[in-house]
Design a protein around this nucleic acid. Structure first.
Lengths: 337, 337
DNA sequence: GTGAAAGCGCTAACAC
DNA sequence: GTGTTAGCGCTTTCAC
């Protein structure tokens, strides 16, 4: 494993081809002021030597590297992984290379520091642009084109976001359509955009249906199973408990289902449950859950193409791209008449 | 989105702190020959300016970047993604940053070119070491520490590989234990290490049980559903067809099940089927399949720690790390008596 | 059409 | 303990 072969540089190529480094550079960058034969000669030498330009050196010197990056806090997290898949697929067939960057040195996703630090490391040359996933700060150093996915706070960057509000409306209206009049809600993390939008949708749907907004029916949460469990317990202990519960994500929906079981209620006979998101492994552990699905990998796809447009200087249709959520109806809900 | 703020360099920090660039560099790299007050002063300026060193420049000049990389052909592929998850989890809590590198400019995973090209781009500075996933060539330029995962050909690099042979033995012996005497086999791509090992295990198990090796029972394949389908058709048309089929991966096992259905056979009543691998989405589309599971994300975990050892110059226990497969028994097999 | 040389942001001698 | 300086591999004027 010792670094046997020393790296071959542009100089090695130049020497072997009997030209200057600048000529090799011209060939590398497909400049048109190189004679055909020189071009061929250099190309042959490059092939023979197996030379490939150093990303580091190239990016130091020139603005374009044809590489873009995805900055992710936790690559072990299912949401992030799904997104990476979408980006990974989107990049195939383009002229770009992709760097997914994640750090081991960061304790918590809530400190805005990590995003800024890593972003500026990348942006200072190596990549032509970056997709930041679920950024928690609006204050991002933007030396290069930037697209954010599922921003946790509103900021002024081009963003890809799911139709959280609409999805929540669809879910709530579905329950209303089934005859439910008292529908409980388990919220997500209050400081997050997506959580707010989902709650907004819930309230809006009630309003449209002329149903009263009962604050007792709204439990705050934090997108965890535990929050769903506790929230549901509180709801079920109400004097006039809900007949259906809408949880702001799949994790807390799972908590709701456990709480219902604990209380001796069967789903959907005694309680209808509906969730948001549908991310593996939760998606597979509760295959019966009716849910508003967020097309995560598609969001990666969309973000990629937005970023590429930005990099190439093309105009963006609009700053925000809303990727549609869709209601997946399964067995966890039933009508009451 | 225009590059508003120009990048802050080490010089800006030096100027603002009234010291030289080298002093800043010393602080950045935690050299011990800096006075405490200078250190503090520089740190404060760094924080205030939000400075962060350029990966490109750093890697050009010094050997260590504290970043390692995973080189992946197709980030949209489930195997790769699982692996990335493992690596992503392994890196948390370490002192390293992680770059997952994938290229859009590559048509096929079978051309060894892409690995070499991208590897040398990365290796020439930016990263301290690389994990190459399912490399198809033994001839990798190794300027830096390298670990390969699931190599498709044997090479001399430190490698992480599943216990394919043992897994195949376990699967075959399981079928034998159920009373099966004629067991069909659908192979994987003949040129791949894993495929060979699986077939080897199959044959070895038969031999151990003193069962004859009937070449008619072995169908070549290529890890696709189609190959499984066709192979199974051929097997089922034999004068003396097998009572069980072991497919070299989950995809072809799926093909086998379809072929059995087409032939009017029900599983497991008329035919026992067993597969290898258990990768989503296949894993979820055939939840009844008995299978030899390859712990992919664990392989990423193991590879990460091997690589870190190499980077830090620690000795490796052995060049090859075999991650154990395990037999997951489900409903697709039954005993014949 | 091609070469020489400056310099990107940084680190590592080597001075002082 | 701190500053000066020579390059790392490359791109890009500017000469010729």
């Amino acid at each position: 494993m010792r670094r046997a072969r020393k790296t071959i540089t542009i100089r090695d190529v130049a020497k072997a081809a009997n030209v200057s480094v600048s000529t090799v550079s011209r060939v590398l960058n497909d400049k048109d002021d190189v004679s055909a034969e020189t071009y061929d000669k250099v190309q042959r030498v490059i092939a023979k030597l197996g030379y490939s330009s150093s990303l580091a050196a190239t990016s130091m010197r020139s603005r374009r590297t044809n590489v873009f990056s995805v900055l992710i806090f936790d690559l072990g997290d299912p949401f992030s992984l799904e997104l990476v898949m979408g980006v990974g697929r989107a990049v195939r067939g383009t002229e770009y290379d992709l760097i997914v960057y994640s750090s081991g040195r960061t304790a918590s996703s809530t400190e805005p520091e990590w995003e800024r630090r890593h972003l500026s490391r990348l942006a200072s040359g190596i990549t032509d642009g970056t997709i930041v996933v679920t950024p928690t700060t609006a204050d991002l150093p933007s030396a290069a084109p930037l697209v954010v996915v599922d921003p946790h706070v509103d900021n002024s960057f081009p963003a890809v976001i799911a139709t959280n509000r609409k999805g929540a409306i669809a879910a709530t209206e579905y329950l209303i359509g089934l005859g439910h009049r008292r529908i409980g809600f388990i919220g997500g993390r209050a400081e997050l955009l997506s959580a707010n939008q989902r709650q907004q949708g819930y309230q809006e749907a009630l309003q449209r249906a002329n149903l009263p907004l009962d604050l007792d029916l709204i439990q705050s949460g934090d997108y965890t199973q535990k929050a769903g469990f506790q929230g549901a317990q509180a709801l079920l202990r109400l004097p006039d408990p809900p007949t259906a519960i809408f949880a702001a994500n799949d994790g807390s929906a799972f908590g709701v289902m456990r709480a219902a079981q604990d209380a001796g209620l069967s789903i959907p006979d005694d309680l209808s449950v509906i969730g948001f998101d549908n991310i593996p492994p939760a998606a597979h552990s509760i295959p019966t859950l009716t849910t508003v699905e967020q097309p995560i990998s598609e969001m990666g796809y969309v973000a990629t193409h937005m970023l590429i447009k930005l990099i190439q200087g093309e105009p963006l249709g609009s700053r925000l791209d809303h990727v549609p959520t869709r209601l997946i109806v399964r067995e966890s809900c039933r009508s009451i008449k």
